[in-house]
Computed example of a mutant assay.
Amino acid sequence: MGTSLKSTGLSTLNYEALLKGLKDAFAGAKVALTQQQAQQYINDAITKASAVKTKAENEANKIKFAPMIKEGQEFLEENKKRAGVQTTASGLQYEVLTAGTGVKPTATDSVLVHYKGTLLNGKQFDSSYDRGEPISFPLNRVIPGWTEGVQLMPAGSKYKFFIPYHLAYGERGAGADIPPYSALIFEVELLKVNGK
């Protein structure tokens, strides 16, 4: 029980109250809390402890990945000076490679796209081109940089997006190929707006 509770992030317990509760429950004596009240207190304590643990882990990761964060910030700072690169209020950068003339999607639309994603060092982590077929998905179910960026595109367009980590996979990263705090580059071709 102790190991299990500690793994949730709890750092202290009122051992006397815990032991009294165990003894009372075993003896069938009157207990201080109902089962429902006890469960609520436990859930609240674990939620609070988990939030503290997550915050501490994020702070440690921020220190560990500080060079990556700095690299992304420096890249985006230089990149926005290039001709043709536009920056939105959120920090998303984009470059129009091919201007389409179709309709622009909304955040609740599903879209059909071809795309290629790379890290700043050029390492490719995903490509629908390599798989040989485009992909459809709802725009509100992807990273924020995609949700915002693809809405800027008329169908038939091809854009290049430069996405800061907070609009990509943030402090988590994604799988083995996208480390935490990674700024990402995507080439996206909007083939069709499927609608709602």
Rank of each mutant, 00 (worst) to 15 (best):
M1F: 13
G2N: 13
L5F: 08
G9F: 07
G9Q: 05
S11Q: 13
T12M: 08
L13R: 14
L13W: 09
Y15M: 12
A17Q: 10
G21F: 09
G21Q: 12
K23A: 08
D24E: 14
D24Y: 09
F26E: 11
K30V: 15
K30G: 02
V31K: 14
A32M: 15
A32K: 14
L33Q: 12
Q35S: 09
A38N: 04
A38C: 05
Q39Y: 04
Y41A: 08
Y41G: 06
I42L: 08
D44G: 03
D44T: 15
A45K: 12
I46A: 04
A49V: 12
A51D: 03
K55V: 06
E57N: 04
E57Y: 03
N58C: 00
E59F: 01
A60S: 08
A60T: 00
A66N: 05
A66R: 01
A66H: 03
P67V: 15
M68A: 10
M68I: 12
K70A: 07
K70V: 09
E71T: 05
G72I: 09
G72E: 09
Q73K: 14
F75I: 15
L76D: 06
L76F: 09
E77V: 07
E78I: 13
N79T: 08
N79E: 12
K80L: 01
K80S: 06
K81R: 07
K81H: 13
A83Q: 12
V85I: 14
V85F: 03
Q86I: 10
A89M: 02
S90W: 12
S90M: 05
G91E: 07
L92A: 11
Q93P: 03
E95M: 05
V96C: 00
G100H: 11
G100T: 14
G100F: 13
T101W: 00
T101I: 04
K104L: 05
K104G: 01
K104Q: 11
T106V: 04
T106W: 02
A107N: 10
V111M: 05
V111H: 07
V111K: 10
L112C: 03
L112Y: 07
V113S: 03
H114R: 14
G117V: 05
L119F: 06
L119K: 06
G122E: 08
K123R: 12
K123D: 12
F125Y: 14
S127W: 07
S128M: 09
D130C: 05
E133L: 06
F137K: 15
P138A: 15
N140Y: 14
W146F: 11
G149C: 02
G149M: 06
V150G: 01
M153N: 06
G156W: 13
S157L: 05
F161P: 00
F161H: 13
I163C: 03
I163S: 01
A168I: 13
Y169P: 00
G173Q: 02
A174W: 14
G175N: 08
P179F: 01
P179W: 04
P179L: 01
P180T: 10
Y181T: 01
Y181W: 01
S182F: 00
A183D: 11
L184E: 11
I185V: 13
F186H: 04
V188T: 09
E189F: 04
E189M: 04
L191D: 02
L191T: 13
K192D: 07
V193I: 04
K196P: 00
K196R: 11
